[in-house]
Write a protein that binds this DNA or RNA. Structure first.
Lengths: 157, 157
DNA sequence: TAAGATTGACATTTCAATCTTT
DNA sequence: AAAGATTGAAATGTCAATCTTA
């Protein structure tokens, strides 16, 4: 690439490849569960929430997704009884999304798939030292790409 | 996450974030050029090819894409005169896709955008040493996810 | 008028045919 | 029959309204 050193372009190209390959690879592994990586992440966000309940807007932020997209994903998940919609008590405009029991069961299976995938796709390729090294560096890059990360952490505007 | 160490889950989560954030971030930067990251990669693949010409199937492999997807992307690029289709000389089933002069000009602008993006999104966050460190490690992971990588490199079957 | 959320129109991706040539 | 490529139907994502409540 023009103007980038060998290691620089190697890093950039790897990130580009990862951006194309990672999600499809996970989608494929989750396919037997009839779940996409995005849906899985959505269910996880709910599971981590206080009463396993979250506002759509918050879910969208956690998943770096648009509101319309999250709204439609939630609609599909609700049809499959993995989540449940309920009108919010304090704000009649908002609805609270809650993870159902079926959703929790689905999440359990998916978490097992994810754990195996993490080993096979990534962790088995690196030594413990390399993981310690690359983890924080990649986290720094990811935070920088997070719309709420580098600016949102500061707060204003 | 269950069963992963701190650095392990940090790495995994970062990869998940990257898989959601990287392409959209690049798409946004390329938007003034009316080009997606995928289209940009497609044009680059052609530019790197011997006579700036490639078979659709090869283009699909280079971009880790399905054949139907690449076929439709090429159709759109052709409408915009960025590439040109020509029947292959040796095989009447295949058509050769060639980068046009307009495509080369577009690619030049896009390359400048990419270079700036690489700095701002990634490289400016890391020291030269860190880049030397993380580049090869990430390349290893990316190759492992490449359908043609870990198996294709061996060759047979 | 703003905010939370949904809906509709349109573009893109995927998967399963389909068509032509080998 | 198999390979290169395209096409059509169905699913999903995006963007611009729209609707209701604050």
């Amino acid at each position: 690439m023009s103007g980038l050193s060998g290691a620089e372009s190697e890093l950039w190209i790897s990130l580009t490849m990862l951006s194309q390959l990672f999600a499809p690879a996970m989608d494929q592994r989750l396919r037997p569960l009839d779940l996409t990586l995005f849906e899985f992440g959505t269910l996880m966000a709910l599971a981590d929430a206080p009463r396993r309940t979250l506002r759509i807007k918050v879910m969208a932020e956690r998943m770096y997704s648009s509101l319309p997209r999250m709204s439609k994903v939630v609609a599909r998940l609700e049809e499959r009884d993995l989540v449940r919609r309920a009108p919010a008590v304090d704000d009649a405009r908002a609805s609270d999304i809650e993870l159902t029991a079926a959703g929790r069961r689905k999440l359990l299976s998916a978490a097992a798939v994810q754990k195996a995938a993490a080993r096979e796709m990534v962790l088995s390729l690196l030594t413990a030292e390399e993981v310690e090294l690359v983890g924080p560096l990649l986290a720094r890059v990811a935070r920088n790409l997070d719309p709420a990360g580098p600016l949102g952490a500061i707060g204003s505007e």
